[in-house]
Write a protein that binds this DNA or RNA. Structure first.
Lengths: 101, 101
DNA sequence: TAGGTATTTAGGTAAATACCTAAGTTTGTC
DNA sequence: GACAAACTTAGGTATTTACCTAAATACCTA
């Protein structure tokens, strides 16, 4: 668990927002986009970029970095890449801050 | 507690290191600098900058930002500014990540 | 008031990050 | 194979951050 990498992957508002949106997709994404939502997969890049109001490439890189830091998990399926939160990592991060930081 | 501000105040290695050094000053600072160390105050700017191997102004700004984010507490005494960790804030941060992030 | 030490503020350059558009890749469908 | 949809990679500009030196401020002591 590389603390600095994680912190950097979280150090802008959009990235923090994405994490919040993915915590409860039904509260933040339009129902029609979630018609076949699978919690094991998460939400696809274009839906997230739409929600963020940013270009797909920008958001794609954000997500990729967050996945590299192990805060998100990416799953490629057909032509989509889905992202979901890595809850275990997030809890580990909390523990690390609590005990080690 | 402004999460983004806190995260930004922690998003470089030196700042993380400072937090670690202040957790156990006797393990990281030369004994002679700590001859009248007071845990209620912490360590002064110039000692921290020496330990970091960076200029005093650079470290002064780091410390100031971390204090603005409430992660450190600054105390001015005579011509020195001492910094110590804000343990309560750090625990709050851990809780926030655990429950809200 | 003069001079010294500790710190902060200002101002500058270099590197990193934020975003975009355009171009390429992957995968599915006709 | 041609085309479309979703995504990634490349490449560019603008803003932010890193870090320095120089100058200003604060506070002590003679």
């Amino acid at each position: 668990m590389k603390l600095l990498e994680i912190i950097k992957s979280l150090s802008n508002q959009t990235r923090l927002d994405i994490l919040a949106w993915l915590k409860d997709p039904f509260a933040y994404f339009p129902a029609e986009e979630l018609s076949d939502y699978d919690p094991a997969l998460g939400v696809c890049v274009s839906d997230i970029s739409k929600k963020a109001g940013m270009s797909v490439p920008t958001v794609s890189v954000y997500l990729k970095n967050m996945a590299a830091a192990d805060i998100l998990v990416a799953t490629r399926k057909d032509q989509w890449t889905y992202y979901k939160r890595n809850e275990e990592s997030i809890q580990q991060l909390a523990e690390l801050i609590k005990d080690k930081l």
